[in-house]
């Protein structure tokens, strides 16, 4: 089985045209891989580019240089150079992502927000919803919220919907951007449990966890992002 994620010599900077075109280097020479059944954690102080790395892996940020290799339908694909359609297919089939904040859509019920990634993969609506409800139950989201759109939910409630949505599929690679940031201890424990289940089933996980307890509970390995700080060698 190929390594689910290989990141090789990736560099990223932002050019701020509205600020006289100044170039803000973010990371360069990013090299790491994540194995199946492993939970790697991106470490380092804030602002170092951890989230940017996750966003590049998800195709959300462009990549200046380097390769991000994943396996899709038994073919190795470089996300850094993939066309939009391929990226969307990869998101549907290979890479799951739990972002820091839920992007809500008006009028779509929480349970449907959670079930959607399964529906996109062609799974029947009732099966997907059953699975969604199981997850929301596990994450202690009150039942009366299931049929409501998450727009008006509290931060913690929205985050649990977001987690359920990210964990509902069997994607071989799961990216987690501070999934436990706004959760209480009880729910953090649930997330830790969910991550352990994912690991056991062979999912490769890459995450950012500021919470020390969670991090030590799930991390197999810390990748120090300050190693990839742009301009480090030159400085």
């Amino acid at each position: 089985m190929p390594t689910p994620l290989v990141v090789s010599e990736v560099a990223k900077s932002f050019v701020m045209h509205l600020r006289d075109g100044i170039k803000l280097p973010v990371v360069e020479n990013v090299n790491f891989s994540v194995a199946a059944g492993e939970c790697a954690v991106l470490g380092g102080p804030s602002g170092i580019g951890k989230s940017s790395i996750l966003k590049m892996l998800y195709g959300n940020y462009g990549v200046d240089a380097g390769q991000i290799l994943i396996t899709h339908n038994d073919v190795t694909v470089d996300i850094a150079g993939a066309d939009p359609r391929t990226v969307l297919n990869i998101r549907r089939d290979v890479i799951g992502y739990v972002s820091q904040f839920l992007r809500t859509v008006p009028r779509v019920a929480a349970v449907d927000v959670v079930a959607e990634p399964l529906l996109a993969r062609g799974i029947k609506s009732d099966v997907a919803r059953t699975r969604a409800i199981e997850l929301l139950e596990k994450l202690n989201l009150p039942e009366h919220l299931w049929q409501l759109p998450p727009t008006t939910f509290s931060g913690g409630e929205q985050q649990r919907v977001n987690i359920a949505r990210g964990f509902i599929t069997n994607h071989p690679l799961l990216l987690l951007d501070e999934p436990t940031a706004s959760l209480d201890a009880e729910n953090r424990a649930v997330v830790v449990q969910l991550i352990r289940e994912k690991k056991a089933s062979g999912t490769a996980l890459l995450g950012i966890f500021h919470d020390q307890d969670v991090r030590s509970a799930v991390a197999d390995r810390i990748i120090d992002v300050s190693m990839f700080r742009a301009g480090r060698e030159a400085a």
Partner: peptide
């Protein structure tokens, strides 16, 4: 041009950055 969230979250061109901002 590109993936919608890529263009909106990481706009490259000066005009796109202006639009997004």
């Amino acid at each position: 041009q590109g993936l919608t969230d890529r263009v909106l979250d990481d706009p490259r061109e000066p005009y796109t950055q202006l639009l997004v901002s």
